[in-house]
């Protein structure tokens, strides 16, 4: 039995699902739209909560899928159901027949320009969390020029009806604290502030990271959401927030502002999703069959979902889902 399983998306979820499916004796085929596997996580430098190099994890995952059939720079342009399962047409005109489809299409990072009051793309020194991660990885970014005062804004594009995203993006809190610590490592003299609405330290070791952030790295956490950013004469950023615990509006001049952008379901899959008949939830993420026991099943027979296409998730969550989807698919093929 060497059934084809089409996996759309070669990020953490896609790679891990492929690894497990291979082990289970099936033939996974990854279709990835970018020129490499690894997804968002490959752009990351270190992972929370323990500052583990992302490279280690990604390399291991890549190593696991080196025998897996993967099509890079390729997108699924059309997909149809037939008697044998699914018939997919790729952008390189190739066709694939598969018994089952796994949507592991992940997320798009919220476009920070949409929160115009934060001035991303307008002011020089406003960057996103992803750009900061690139800076840690590559060691240079013209906008990060020995800053003395650095601010992190949580919940950019999350928990905000004004951009239409009312959900919590789950990982940005911890990411912000991790990056705040890393900034202190790079610029020990800098003052680092985070502006949060709630700090949601839900996972193992996360609360310890929070403690470390305050204790060892002297990062100052201010409970209040930044609502306006402007630029002063010297091109430094003037931010306005309320220190809600102190109960006063606060104004501060910063050299660098990092926006913790939220996750949104990847838009590029919309067309295929429609063809497969997979609806979205009210938050824009894909609907699965059931929140508890059917989290990897879609409402369509033979179509499975894994990873952040259904909701914001951390890397361990995603890997766990990828493994469980492999089992689901295995059982599905065997019971056919």
């Amino acid at each position: 039995m060497k059934e084809n399983i089409l996996i759309i998306g070669g990020g953490a979820a896609g790679m891990e699902a492929a690894t497990q499916l291979k082990k289970l004796g099936l033939n996974p085929i990854i279709v990835e739209k970018s020129e490499r596997l690894g997804g968002h996580i490959a752009q990351w430098d270190r992972l929370f909560p323990a500052f583990h190099p992302a490279k280690d994890v990604v390399e291991q995952m890549l190593n696991n899928v080196k025998d897996v059939d993967a099509r890079l720079n390729t997108e699924v342009t059309d997909i149809q159901r037939d008697n044998n399962g699914f018939h997919a047409v790729l952008s390189n005109k190739e066709t694939i027949d598969a018994k089952a489809v796994i949507l592991a299409t992940g997320f798009d990072l919220f476009k920070a320009e949409r929160k115009q009051e934060y001035g991303y793309g307008i002011y020089n020194n406003v960057i996103t969390s992803l750009e900061l991660e690139k800076f840690f990885k590559e060691g240079k970014d013209p906008r990060i020029n020995n800053p003395k005062k650095i601010g992190f804004v949580h919940c950019v594009g999350a928990r905000d009806v004004k951009v239409g995203n009312t959900y919590c993006s789950k990982v940005c809190c911890t990411t912000a604290l991790k990056q705040a610590c890393e900034m202190k490592e790079v610029f020990p003299d800098a003052e680092v502030y985070t502006f949060y609405m709630d700090l949601r330290m839900f996972g193992p070791g996360y609360e310890d990271l929070y403690l470390k952030t305050q204790k060892d790295f002297d990062v100052k956490c201010i409970r209040g959401r930044v609502c306006e950013v402007s630029e002063d004469m010297d091109g430094r950023l003037v931010i306005k927030a309320e220190d809600t615990l102190f109960g006063k509006p606060l104004r501060m001049t910063l050299d660098l502002l990092v926006l913790m952008c939220s996750m949104e379901k990847a838009k590029s899959i919309d067309k295929i999703q429609q063809k497969l008949g997979i609806a979205n939830n009210s938050d824009g993420f894909m609907q699965n069959k059931d929140m508890y026991l059917g989290m990897n099943d879609s409402k369509q027979d033979g179509v499975f979902v894994a990873g952040t296409c259904t909701a914001p998730k951390s890397l361990p969550d995603t890997i766990g889902e990828a493994r469980s989807v492999a089992v689901e698919v295995f059982n599905y093929i065997n019971n056919k």
Binding site: Q116, E117, I122, Y123, C227, S230, E231
Partner: peptide, 9 residues
């Protein structure tokens, strides 16, 4: 317009 700094700029 204070909330849309692009216009001011």
């Amino acid at each position: 317009t204070q909330l849309t700094p692009k216009i001011m700029r």
